[in-house]
Simulated scan of single mutants.
Amino acid sequence: MSIWQAIILAIVEGLTEFLPVSSTGHMVIASSLMGISSFEFTKMFTVSIQFGAILSVVVLYWKRFINSVDFYKKLLTAVIPALAIGFLLKDLVYAMLERVEIVAISLLLGGLFLIYVDRLFTEKEHPVTTPSYRNAFIIGLFQCIAMIPGVSRSASSIIGGLTQRMTRKSAAEFSFFMAVPTMLAATTYSVIKDLLHLEISDVLTFNLPKIQAGFNAITAQEWQVLAVGNMVAFLVAMAAIKFFVGFLTKYGFKLFGYYRLVVGLVLLLLLGLGVDIQLL
C-alpha cells in the first residue's frame, strides 16, 4: 500500500465512520477500486486507522470524558450487549462478513429506512439529553444490529437513542461516545492479531520475545503508512463530526438515506461488472 492509497482510505474512514452511511461499504468500494482489497495489510490498516477516528471524539468532547465515573458506567452498560452477542454469534457474524452482497442489500434497505425515519421520531416536548442506564442498555442493543455488514454502527445506535426520546444531537453524541470503547477494542485486537501476529495470551503474560519479534517484523514503510493514515483519519473525522451534528439536528436523516441508496447501487454495479470485491 502506498502513502497516497493510505491517505485515500483514511479520508474515507474519517468521513464515514460517524455518519449513518456504513464505513464498511465505503472502505470495500475504495479498496476494491484501488486494487488493494485482497492484501492482508489493507484489512489490518482499515481497522487500525479507527484509532485516529476514536481520538477525534476524545479531543472534541474531552470535557465529557473527565466529567464523572457515571459517564463510563453508562458507556460500559451500552457496550455489554455487543460484547455478549458478538461472542455468542461470532460464527454467524464471520459468515456474513464474507458476503459482499449483504453489504449492498443492507445499504439499500438502511437507506430506505433513513428516508422515512424522521417521520417516526419527531422532537419530543421533554426530550432526554442524558441517557439513564436503561436507556444506555437499549441503545447498546440497537448497536448490535450493526453486526450485519453495511448496516452502520452510527445509524443503528443513533436510532436506538431516538427510541429512548433523546434529541438527534444527544443521540448522535452518545453514539460517538459508544464508538470509543467499541472501536478501541476492535483496533487493539486487530493490531495484536493481524499486525503483530500475536495471541492475546502473549500480551497478557507479557511474552517479551514474541512481542519484540512482532514489532520487528513490521517494516519502516508500514509504520509510516499507519502513522499517516491515523493522522489523516483523525483530522477528517473531527471535521465530519462537527458537520454531522449540525446537519442532523437541522435536516434529519433523509439525505443520508438517499446517499446510501446510491452507494448500495454502486456496490451492486461493481459486483455485476465482475470487479474483485472483498470484505475487509
Rank of each mutant, 00 (worst) to 15 (best):
G272M: 09
T46Q: 13
K90N: 15
T129Q: 10
I159R: 07
S170V: 01
L280W: 03
F244V: 03
I3M: 13
E123A: 05
L267T: 10
Y94I: 05
L107Q: 03
I7D: 01
V79P: 00
A53D: 04
L204H: 03
C144N: 07
F65V: 04
A171P: 04
Q50N: 13
K250W: 01
L195G: 02
E13P: 01
V266A: 12
G274T: 13
S154L: 13
R99S: 06
F234M: 07
H26F: 05
E199L: 08
L9N: 02
L75Q: 10
I66H: 06
S31M: 00
I211S: 12
T122P: 07
V58T: 05
G229V: 06
K63N: 13
Y116P: 01
T129V: 14
V47L: 07
G86H: 08
V69A: 11
R165E: 15
Q221V: 10
F65C: 06
I218A: 11
D202R: 07
S37F: 04
L19T: 08
M147I: 11
M147Q: 09
L9D: 07
F256R: 09
Y189T: 13
G229E: 02
K43F: 00
G150Q: 03
G140Y: 09
A227Q: 02
D194G: 02
L15Q: 03
N67D: 11
A84Y: 08
K63Q: 13
R168I: 04
V100F: 06
E222T: 09
L280G: 14
L88N: 04
T182E: 01
T16N: 00
M231Q: 00
I148E: 08
M231P: 00
M183N: 12
I145C: 11
K90D: 13
A186C: 02
A78M: 09
K193H: 14
W62I: 12
I139G: 07
K90L: 01
